[in-house]
């Protein structure tokens, strides 16, 4: 049987969850025995090249590109995991939820105390730029999510146990200390 294929991506996140993934340290060697990595910021493969068994999503959706990438992952991943606080609940970026988008954009580009160079008062409107959404959405509000791995960031041991349990088709048995929030 061929090895299960994993792909990961970071949407509106800080890459902290991916950093935590790297914290599995030398077990990454065991991991590549167990699974095959496809597109991921870790190996810098830019495009999905085959159907994916496990898609791991860091971050929620704050702009149109996040939505498109997330939908694309959903379409091409058998199992999709919301990975970390932002993917599950919006996280820090979602602090803007409840503040009108207009206020956020003006604060960022016109009125903020650190805005000094935008003398022409330009708001980012190039068609190439992703479009900011009205609020930050957790992944499950955009596509169906199969599993949730909480943490900010989830501990490496927790990620390890979860991925191993999933690919070996076992129940995950992790002690509280491994997945607790603090």
């Amino acid at each position: 049987m061929s090895k299960p294929v994993i792909a990961t991506t970071s949407l509106a996140g800080c890459f902290g969850c991916h950093m935590s993934l790297l914290d599995i340290d030398e077990r990454i060697l065991e991991l590549i025995e167990l699974v095959e990595f496809n597109k991921s910021p870790i190996n810098d493969i830019k495009k999905l090249t085959k159907p994916i068994d496990i898609g791991i999503i860091e971050g929620g959706c704050c702009n149109s590109e996040n939505v498109e990438v997330l939908r694309y992952f959903r379409e091409n991943c058998k199992t999709l995991i919301s990975f970390g606080e932002c993917a599950i609940m919006g996280g820090l970026p979602a602090l803007r939820n409840g503040i009108p988008v207009e206020e956020c954009i003006k604060e960022a580009y016109l009125d903020g105390p650190t805005v000094q160079l935008n003398k022409d008062k330009v708001l980012p409107n190039d068609p190439e730029l992703p479009i900011i959404l009205d609020r930050v959405y957790p992944c499950h509000e955009v596509v169906k999510i199969d599993y949730y791995l909480p943490g900010c960031a989830p501990r490496a041991d927790f990620i390890w146990e979860a991925v191993v349990a999933l690919v070996t088709n076992n129940e995950m048995a992790v002690p509280y200390e491994v997945f607790k929030f603090d």
Partner: peptide
């Protein structure tokens, strides 16, 4: 979801 920000910018 994108209407509002498009109007703003």
């Amino acid at each position: 979801a994108i209407q509002e920000s498009c109007q703003v910018v």
